[in-house]
């Protein structure tokens, strides 16, 4: 366990906990997802940098592209939710429980 590895792992896990517990806005949940993906980007980059694994420097770039796709899909869902529910509060997403 190096301090760098600890920092990245705790950053990811904190983002996950922030996503799982007490979200008020859908946008905050998406920001937590982004924080998780950012921690993953730094983790992948540092893995390839520390091991001098040159070929693996491609991995964070591809991951960044995929996480950008995910973020834009999330923002589109934010827009769609704001249209159908009138707000982006997560507690208004309660039509399906019974």
């Amino acid at each position: 366990m190096t301090p760098t590895h600890f920092t990245i792992s705790s950053a990811f896990l904190l983002g996950l906990m922030g996503l799982a517990f007490h979200r008020t806005h859908l946008l905050s949940a998406l920001l937590c997802l982004e924080a998780m993906m950012l921690a993953l980007f730094i983790a992948l980059s540092l893995w390839s940098l520390q091991l001098d694994a040159t070929g693996y420097s491609t991995a964070p770039m591809l991951m960044l592209a995929f996480s950008a796709c995910e973020a834009s899909a999330g923002l589109a869902l934010l827009v769609a939710t704001a249209r159908t529910h009138g707000t982006d509060h997560l507690q208004n997403l309660n039509l399906l429980q019974c």
Partner: peptide, 19 residues
């Protein structure tokens, strides 16, 4: 600073501050 930044995102402030 990185850990503190993620805490500031995860602690559920308004989206401006989380951004």
């Amino acid at each position: 600073g990185m850990v503190l930044g993620v805490i500031s995102v995860a602690s559920n402030p308004s989206p401006y501050f989380a951004a």
